[in-house]
Design a protein around this nucleic acid. Structure first.
Length: 383
DNA sequence: AAATCGTGGTT
DNA sequence: TAACCAAGATT
């Protein structure tokens, strides 16, 4: 492969750096008694599974509090398997990429059958081969390798965002990441230390998180500086080669906060076919060409709920960006004129006292609306 | 195989 | 209406 002088030396220098500067207090990488696992020791699998799925496209510091709460709410894989979708989404709320929550839920049910009556606290009861893990919902090549190398200390190469960035700089890849995956996977596999795969993989990710960062990499204290093509070229920040950035489509969304005579607000649950499936939301929809936003709200609530509303007051408006679109939400207080809400474009609808909204999982954009509702109600009480 | 899927932090 | 993007998987 790449003609490095000594791969053994590279491994040693990375592991030496890791011993001094790595992140050694990640809870799911420690034994239940809090000590660092020895080379031959295995770790509980379920906490690692939860962490690795949460870590998909999500940074460690964001994941930590969610992982802590998740482990209290669903302490074992059996607790997770028997949980309700509603409970899963409440625990995942705010973390994003909600399909991950549904997939790990499905995976837990498969694992419940696989484990059967065996001791789920014993790592030996769990599958330890890559193919078995990749077959599970929401587990891909990198997540499977992370689980296997972390839990069992079995050598399995991974290629996450950190490793892609490190390796593309190391070899000065002139291809975009998507066109060079095969080469980078091979390189990750060649470099992986067969004797210390758990530490080596973690060391790579720590190096990417702390030294070989996307912007302003700290090459001056990088253990692989002398091996790095991009460092010698003087332009590590130019790697990996980034493709053309395209402008995100932009839409205006009209939202209707419909209140009934009891002061309850109307919410609906998103369908399985939609993004953020199973999450709740305030009804509304996309503004059409040449349409006033107030009219959007009236039209959408008629189409999706079969009700007629009066748009009373604009409560708040704000921007919210998703991965592949930007939305501008315009949120109105509405009154119900006629009709009974029907779930024509949702799983179900519900009238809820504002104080009870906290019991329903909402996407982040809707959380902004909930805050606005609370401010509005408080200001109405104290004029 | 290119598009899709969230969010919050950083620059 | 800032751009970028991080411990990816799925279709």
């Amino acid at each position: 492969m790449e003609n490095f002088e000594s791969i053994e030396k590279m491994r040693f220098e990375l592991l030496k750096w890791y011993a001094c500067h790595g992140r050694h207090s990640i809870p799911w990488k420690l034994k239940p008694d809090g000590s660092v696992p020895k080379k031959s020791e295995k770790l509980p699998v379920y906490p690692i599974l939860v962490a690795e799925v949460m870590l998909q496209q999500t940074q460690l510091n964001v994941v930590l509090p969610y992982w802590e709460n998740w482990m209290k709410t669903f302490p074992t894989v059996f607790d997770l398997a028997s949980a309700l979708d509603h409970e899963i989404l409440l625990a995942w709320q705010g973390l994003g990429y909600y399909s991950r929550a549904h997939r790990i839920h499905k995976t837990s049910k498969v694992l419940r059958n696989v484990l059967g009556d065996s001791d789920h606290l014993n790592p030996e009861s769990w599958p330890n081969d890559k193919e078995s893990w990749i077959a599970l919902p929401g587990i891909g090549r990198t997540t499977a390798a992370s689980i296997i190398s972390s839990a069992f200390n079995i050598p399995e190469a991974l290629l996450d965002g950190n490793v892609k960035r490190i390796l593309s700089r190391l070899i000065g890849s002139q291809e975009s990441l998507s066109k060079d995956l095969k080469r980078l996977w091979k390189l990750s596999d060649v470099l992986l230390d067969p004797d210390y795969p758990r530490d080596f993989n973690q060391a790579l990710m720590d190096l990417g998180a702390k030294i070989c960062t996307s912007k302003n990499p700290k090459c001056f204290c990088c253990p692989w500086q002398k091996y790095c093509f991009a460092y010698h070229e003087g332009n590590p920040s130019d790697f990996p080669i980034k493709g053309s950035r395209k402008v995100l489509p932009y839409s205006v969304i009209g939202i209707g906060l419909v209140f009934n005579d009891l002061g309850e607000v109307l919410i609906d649950q998103r369908t399985n076919g939609q993004s953020m499936a199973g999450m709740w939301e305030f009804p509304g929809g996309k503004q059409e060409e040449g349409e006033a936003v107030e009219s959007t709200v009236i039209r959408e609530l008629s189409e999706e709920l079969g009700i007629k509303v009066k748009v009373a007051k604009k409560l708040v408006e704000f921007d919210h960006s998703y991965s592949h679109q930007k939305l501008h939400f315009v949120v109105y207080i509405c009154q119900l004129i006629s009709g009974v809400p029907q779930p024509l474009a949702s799983v179900q609808t519900k009238w809820v006292p504002p104080s009870e909204l906290i019991n329903y999982p909402f996407p982040a954009a809707n959380q902004k609306m909930i805050s606005a509702i609370k401010d509005y109600l408080v200001s109405n009480q104290n004029p």
